[in-house]
Amino acid sequence: MNREQISAAAHARHPIAAPLDDASVRSLLDRAAPRGGRLLDLGCNTATWLIRALTDRPGLRGDGVDLDGGAIARGRAAVAAAGLSDRVDLHIQDAGAFTSPEPFDLVMSVGAAHAFGGLLPTLAAARGHLAPGGAVLVGDGFWEREPGRATLDAGFAADEYTDLATTVARVAADGWTPVHAHVSTRHEWDDYEWSWTGSLAQWGIDHPEDRDAALKAADEHRDAWLGGYRGTLGFVTFVLRQTP
């Protein structure tokens, strides 16, 4: 199994690829999404954010960008099933290279900052697509506490994130004003990680051809989470406006 196949199996029962429950997603969209206009999701995966944003907002149109062709194919099927094909366009390409002749009223990128090299580069990319008066919905990690050796051994670098206060200060210094934010709870984290590892393990059990690879990946991820970054890595999702 390659990385994309592992991710698809792991997110089968938790299509939001971040530690956010349905109520949090709904609340964030209520805060950020306009009733009409244009949305862009950079790193859209299977277009779940776009589908949820557009379902109750008939005046919205959306574009999603992701390099994973398999995820885009599944997203197009989900968009069609939701009856939104006439309002959503999905693009297979590098989100950092995407261009559009028109700006967007909301730019989203939740859990995809690695594709841009971090939170501030993600915001720089979003700024280039944003219409005057628009908003950005962005989610990324932060350190709940100083990472110890177990967290670093799980594959993280000490300077990969900062604490929440420093993260907010850096965002503000970059010209953004937080108008809302959600810090994922321990329950949201645990639900996400158990779903990730459990869904992947289920796939391995049910698909003998992928069994060894799937169970190995699930075990390694679970060990890194429980023995490494649980309680240390946090996740914050901001609704941002550009500071005048």
Rank of each mutant, 00 (worst) to 15 (best):
H207F: 08
R186Q: 13
W143C: 09
A81R: 14
A18R: 09
V79Q: 08
G228L: 14
D30N: 08
M1Y: 10
G198W: 05
D105F: 02
L226T: 09
F156R: 03
L50Q: 06
H207S: 15
I6F: 02
A165I: 08
L200F: 01
A80G: 11
H91S: 11
L119P: 02
A53W: 02
M1R: 12
I16R: 12
G148I: 09
L90P: 00
A150D: 14
L40F: 04
L29Q: 01
A165R: 12
R76P: 03
P19A: 09
A126E: 01
I205L: 13
D163S: 00
D89P: 01
D219M: 13
L106E: 01
K216Y: 06
S195F: 00
A218Y: 04
G75W: 03
R230M: 11
W203Y: 14
R52D: 10
G175L: 08
A97G: 11
W49Q: 13
L20I: 10
S7T: 15
R76N: 07
A154I: 04
D22Q: 15
A12R: 14
W194H: 13
G234P: 03
G83V: 11
L215H: 11
S199K: 04
N2G: 07
L50K: 11
L29V: 03
A47W: 00
L152E: 05
W143S: 14
G59F: 05
T122H: 05
D63C: 15
E146S: 13
G141D: 08
A12H: 07
E209T: 11
L40V: 09
T162W: 00
L84I: 12
G139I: 07
A126P: 04
D219A: 15
T197E: 13
D66S: 13
S85V: 05
P103N: 10
L39S: 07
A32W: 05
V138Q: 09
L60D: 05
Y161N: 14
H187Q: 10
E146F: 08
A82S: 11
N45I: 01
D219V: 13
G111A: 06
R211Q: 15
D68F: 03
S27Y: 01
W49H: 09
G155I: 08
V25T: 15
A169R: 12
L54F: 01
M1N: 07
L90K: 10
L137Y: 06
L42R: 07
T177M: 14
C44T: 15
A154K: 04
L215S: 03
H14E: 03
A47L: 08
G234R: 14
E4N: 01
T177F: 00
A131D: 02
T151L: 04
M108N: 02
S109A: 09
L106A: 00
I92S: 02
P103M: 13
V179Y: 00
E193V: 15
L54Y: 07
G69S: 12
T48N: 05
R241G: 00
M1A: 13
L152F: 12
Y229A: 12
S100P: 01
L137S: 04
L39W: 06
W194K: 09
Q202A: 15
L123S: 00
V239Q: 00
G148E: 08
P178K: 09
R61C: 11
G227S: 05
F98M: 13
F104L: 04
F104K: 00
A115S: 11
A135L: 13
D89G: 13
Q202W: 05
A9P: 00
G62E: 00
W203I: 08
R145F: 04
A73Q: 14
S109G: 12
R222T: 08
H14S: 12
D22G: 12
L54A: 10
